[in-house]
Amino acid sequence: MLLEARDLNVYYGAIHALQGVSFDVDEGEIVTLIGANGAGKSTILKTVSGLLHPRSGQVLLRGESLVNVPAQDIVRKGIIHVPEGRKIFAPLTVAENLEMGAFTRSDPAEIQATMERVFKSFPRLKERLTQLGGTLSGGEQQMLAIGRGMMAQPKLLLLDEPSMGLAPILVEEIFSIIQEINSQGVSVLLVEQNALMALSIAHRGYVLETGRIVLSGAGQELINNPQVIQAYLGGH
């Protein structure tokens, strides 16, 4: 197993945000977490990437505990978190944002090669290398956020709502790029509001309700689950 989360309990002060959450991601999988606003999806990703520390429970990467490892060291283990809301470094140029994505790497030739791959997925970024990150459009910022994540050569990519605020055509594009990244051997843990899209590309999914996992199964299985249809797929 690549990533295992066991019985996570995470608090914000007195708020018990994750209540005994367990899930796993296998090598090469796309796993999606769906749930309503405030269910705790972002909290899960932040706990895996080390921005938050669980009060109890375990996060294991290939059996090695990640609890209490600082976020910057988790990056070096190959887990890359593309946070909700893009979080582009506004005063840095597009090129500098991408360089920051490769902060833990040192071989300039290899970094350049990865950058070329990013440009293949997002040609728009190449045209805007010297533009400040903060002046990109929302969609371009999302491309930059994913591209910046790719720059670290992740083994496991944590994506928090990559389709938020994007035009439908761009949503399709982003999802096909996620599948492409996955086909190169990168495992993906995907948090999405767009449950239908997420479940249709995911191998497996988990449904989260107020800090607890209430359902899990293969992507197709969940798409056809009456409960999921009712709550997350608009009862289609």
Binding site: L51, A71, Q72, V75, H81, F89, A90, M100
Partner: peptide, 11 residues
């Protein structure tokens, strides 16, 4: 600009 996101870069 943004400390948590900087940490997510490995900084």
């Amino acid at each position: 600009f943004d400390k948590p996101t900087a940490r997510l870069m490995g900084i």
